[in-house]
């Protein structure tokens, strides 16, 4: 990594850390939301669907501002969490939260698609043999949707790597703490002579995004083959 300056390397490493934790921490919620949307009929289902997909259509800066309002030091949730020592504002954890929220719709959509492809007859058959709901989920549903979970996680990771608007609004652009790869590109472009560094980061960003898309496509094809039963 000699060809990257320390500040660039710091941004790449931070982006990887932020994206990793954003993906990992949102995964249980992603599976739960996808399962609820695919399987449960309850009042407010459409509202949940709308909320999950909101970050996909809202301007990222709006999402970032909403995060600041709720999870900022003066925000209702932010203040309560700060009392137990969890702080998001202007910390890398805040960057991870912003990335997780922005990537959440992509993750939920991928998992939901694979849930829709699961034959409910298999789950029912397991239940007729006496398996509890939790056991059916763990031993029948979860293994069948694993490719969707993988594809969703890869997409979410790639989206998190590229998150800019919500991150810079919520946690600003602090080198070493919240300056991720995209915000670093932006920062380099603001200073004279910063283009070569920006370009190096752009190449990394493109490589990571393409790699993730290919990987996600490959996993998606495997799901399709499995559904087709070949």
């Amino acid at each position: 990594m000699d060809w990257l300056g320390p500040e660039e390397w710091q941004a790449v490493a931070l982006s990887l850390k932020v994206s990793f934790w954003a993906t990992l921490a949102s995964l249980p919620f992603g599976i739960l939301a996808a399962y609820a949307l695919a399987r449960w009929r309850f009042p407010g289902r459409q509202l949940l669907n709308g909320l999950v997909h909101l970050p996909l259509v809202l301007p990222p800066v709006v999402t970032g501002y909403l995060l600041l309002l709720t999870f900022g030091t003066q925000g209702a949730i932010g203040r309560a969490l700060a009392e137990v020592g969890i702080v998001f504002a202007f910390r890398w954890t805040g960057a991870a939260l912003a990335a997780a929220v922005m990537a959440f719709p992509l993750m939920v959509r991928a998992i939901r698609l694979s849930l829709d492809a699961v034959d409910p007859g298999l789950e029912e058959a397991a239940a007729t043999l006496g398996a509890s709901r939790a056991w059916v989920f763990l031993t029948v549903t979860l293994p069948l949707i694993l490719p969707g979970i993988l594809a969703g996680s890869i997409l979410a990771f790639a989206k998190a790597m590229g998150e800019f608007g919500a991150t810079i609004t919520f946690v600003s652009n602090i080198p070493g703490e919240t300056q991720t790869l995209p915000t670093a590109v932006y920062a380099f472009l603001q200073v004279p002579g910063g283009e070569p560094a920006a370009l190096r980061l752009v190449i990394i960003a493109v490589a990571v995004a393409m790699g993730a898309l290919f990987l996600s496509e490959w996993v998606g094809r495997r799901v399709a083959r499995r559904v087709a039963g070949t």
Binding site: E124, A125, A127, T128, G130, R133, V136
Partner: peptide, 14 residues
């Protein structure tokens, strides 16, 4: 539910 009926001892040959 299905599971509880199975546990009570009801079984189905599909």
């Amino acid at each position: 539910d299905l599971t509880e009926r199975a546990e009570l001892g009801i079984g189905l040959a599909y």
